[in-house]
């Protein structure tokens, strides 16, 4: 196993992936680092990759003049950048590094056709993606309850 494969396999996104899947994804992966405050993805720009956070913290933000709304913070273990998988393949909000952050960036442009070409692999990747989307949607519903309001 290469270092990249090891890092990938250790990420929750890969929990239900096979070793072969991990090797395939590792081919499309590279390590990226972000400095605090760096805007990683900006709304409406092309979504070409997604991130498996290794360390640090990022913010999911929406620019809403006069200000910016922090929607959610995501830590190591999170999967960031679903827009890579769906048309129009542009970011729906801003992603900004809150702290120094390290992530595996996986090339979505090259991954998309592979998902079609190898349906088994595609299904497992989509399941992994759906698991994170499902988890975040549930969290989001709870969040929306505004539980501590008086």
């Amino acid at each position: 196993m290469t270092d990249l494969q090891r890092m990938l396999a250790a990420h929750p996104f890969a929990a239900s992936l096979t070793d072969d899947d991990v090797a395939r994804l590792a081919e499309l992966a590279c390590v990226e680092t972000f400095v605090p405050n760096q805007v990683i993805y900006r709304e409406d720009e092309p979504a070409r990759e997604f991130l498996l956070l290794q360390s640090g913290r990022v913010a999911v933000e929406m620019h809403a003049p006069p200000g910016v709304v922090l929607l959610e913070s995501l830590d190591a273990g999170a999967t960031v950048g679903w827009s890579t998988f769906f048309p129009p393949y542009t970011w729906g909000c801003d992603i900004r590094a809150i702290e120094a952050t390290e992530a595996l960036a996986i090339d979505g442009v090259r991954l998309r056709p592979l998902l079609e070409q190898a349906p088994d692999f595609g299904l497992r990747v989509m399941r992994a993606l759906l698991a994170t989307v499902h988890q975040r949607l549930e969290r989001s519903r709870l969040h929306r309850m505004d539980l501590y309001q008086r």
Partner: peptide
């Protein structure tokens, strides 16, 4: 503005 940007995004889609 957020609503307008996201409406434009949905219209594009």
């Amino acid at each position: 503005e957020v609503m307008m940007r996201h409406t434009a995004r949905a219209l594009r889609a």
